[in-house]
Nucleic acid binder design. Structure first.
Lengths: 184, 184
DNA sequence: GAACGATATGCAACACGTTGCATTGCAACC
DNA sequence: GGTTGCAATGCAACGTGTTGCATATCGTTC
């Protein structure tokens, strides 16, 4: 249900086609709410039916036609309503790395260390990306207000979480390696 | 697909019935992989069909009969295989709080602050819980080895992530409040 | 001119998670 | 004796996410 609200936010920032939205969900808002183009097209259809967005067909030079969507008044109202609504119990945690770690003694510990190292590197890379985006888009965070501030805070959340995963991976790899050396 | 591996881990730690597994998924392993009893019963059926687990019907005094499941050799082999397997691209991030924050200027900022405060409190509570569990189950973390170490590291991951969310919420609430005071 | 990649939209099938409901046995409480 | 509550198992329907495929235009490259 919530993807539709992510789309509303993105379309309120700027109207666009399904394809453009899919590009945005490959980065930017997509870092915090993943979605494929199939999901997006399917949702756009439902949202048109619900009257949350309107659609203009736009013919283009040198490119296939596209359908540009923008948020209707009903859609804007619905978005505002959802933003104010207390969220459902939330955070259904599902972390397969934790499951693997917990089951490490039923598998091969060396493989688990390798897997944690892979994840460590992925989180480090993602953190690097966020820091690059921060420097590029928000060089002076202290002065931000309004929509820019909100966007910055979302990015900050991403950094905090990646930092946490990174330390966790580092600590765990160290502990597993020590354990392999002494016990096992 | 991955729930079945979480169940395998849990059943290798100790054989049990569907109901008992559902209780375990209300805490312990469930903090890192959420699952309802319907999912669990459904998965157990599939896993029996696949030959990953075996089932004994156990009659009980003063209670309904139950079906106790244990991991078969095939199941153990499959679990070990999965643990060693590099995980799929992973972490499909979906954080509705980030979406709400990003859309704050299209809703009511005061409501967003209230919502972030609610989440802040939930994360603080969860962190408290993890710290209690740590003190209860792992009073001397430095000496842990093997399976206990693995369980501790999973808990540590939970704490790191909750700490991160907590600081993020605190920072964001502060920034949003300041922004409301000066600009807007 | 064939092949490839980007733009652009979409269907169908399947896997997985959620919600709501249903049933049985027994104990305890009022 | 009826209600409540825990133990225990399960079905059906629906919503959402994933995977694989299909199609069309246009520009560039081999």
């Amino acid at each position: 249900m919530s993807l539709e609200y992510a789309i509303l936010v993105s379309l309120r920032e700027r109207a666009g086609s399904g394809y453009e939205l899919a590009r945005r969900f490959d980065k930017s808002i997509g870092y915090f709410w993943a979605a494929s183009h199939q999901q997006i097209y399917r949702s756009l259809k439902r949202m048109v039916d619900a009257g949350w967005i309107d659609c203009d067909e736009v013919a283009q030079d040198k490119r296939p036609d596209k359908k540009v969507y923008r948020v209707s008044e009903d859609g804007a109202a619905e978005l505002a309503r959802w933003i104010g609504e207390p969220a459902t119990p939330s955070s259904t945690t599902r972390n397969d790395l934790s499951v693997k770690l917990r089951g490490a003694s039923f598998g091969n510990t060396a493989e688990v260390i390798a897997e944690m190292t892979r994840h460590r590197d992925m989180h480090a890379e993602r953190l690097e990306l966020y820091r690059t985006l921060e420097q590029r888009d928000f060089p002076v965070p202290a002065r931000l207000t309004g929509r820019e501030l909100h966007q910055y805070l979302v990015l900050l959340g991403g950094m905090r979480v990646e930092e946490a995963f990174l330390s966790w991976c580092d600590e765990s790899i160290k502990a597993l390696e020590n354990d392999g050396g002494e016990a096992s």
